[in-house]
């Protein structure tokens, strides 16, 4: 493969992964400009120093790892220790997920369900959110996520479902206080 074709390949990879990677970076640095800069730097470095990875099936996991490392470097060592240590033990918890069902109006009635859910995702516990983001962005398989974070596939699944459970609770809670608030406003009109 000559250099031009490789560059096309590289461009395709960029197109596919720029947005999901930048979102991922944002979850660490919490700043859009830094997140974009970090991801762009990672791509530039790959072209300059690691061209061989571009065609490899490992390109995606590699990019996710490189972006995460770059984010942690950006944040400095303190935050790094706090964030970086993933282990199955952290997630050792009871798996009997319980779900409450309320026979209240359907979620369709909640104004801005989507906005609400967005907020819910932002409020997930850090590691849980990271796993949920990785698994729902559709770019990595669960196996790749497990390898990337150094945990088991089972933990990836559990955390994804923990996130689902938390989101559901979040939406439900919002619903239970939103309704009184909304009705309050309506009665005042």
């Amino acid at each position: 493969m000559n250099s031009n074709d490789l560059y096309v390949q590289f461009r395709l990879l960029f197109r596919q992964l720029y947005d999901p990677l930048t979102k991922y970076a944002y979850t660490f640095v919490l700043d859009h400009t830094s997140a974009e800069d970090i991801v762009q730097d990672v791509f530039v470095r790959i072209w300059e120093k690691h061209q061989s990875i571009i065609e490899s099936p490992q390109a995606r996991p590699y990019l996710y790892r490189a972006v995460k490392n770059a984010c942690l470097n950006h944040l400095g060592s303190k935050k790094r220790i706090q964030l970086a240590s993933f282990s199955d033990a952290d997630f050792d918890e009871n798996n009997n997920i319980t779900w409450t069902v309320t026979e209240e109006p359907d979620e369709d009635d909640i104004p801005n369900y989507r906005e609400l859910l967005k907020k819910g995702i932002e409020q997930l516990p850090e590691k849980c959110r990271e796993i949920f983001l990785l698994s729902r962005s559709g770019q990595l398989s669960n196996q790749e996520i497990a390898d990337h974070l150094g945990i088991s596939i089972k933990t990836v699944n559990n955390q994804t479902w923990k996130a689902m459970k938390l989101l559901k609770a979040f939406v439900q809670k919002a619903k239970s206080w939103l309704w009184p608030v909304i009705t309050y406003f309506f009665t005042r009109l």
């Binding site: 960029f14 197109r15 720029y18 947005d19 999901p20 930048t22 979102k23 859009h32 974009e36 369900y113 989507r114 859910l117 967005k118 995702i121 949920f132 983001l133 729902r136 962005s137 559709g138 989101l167």
Partner: peptide
């Protein structure tokens, strides 16, 4: 919905 939120394009590629 969460999938569509997380896969929604945010950054100008």
């Amino acid at each position: 919905q969460s999938g569509s939120i997380l896969q929604e394009t945010v950054y100008d590629e």
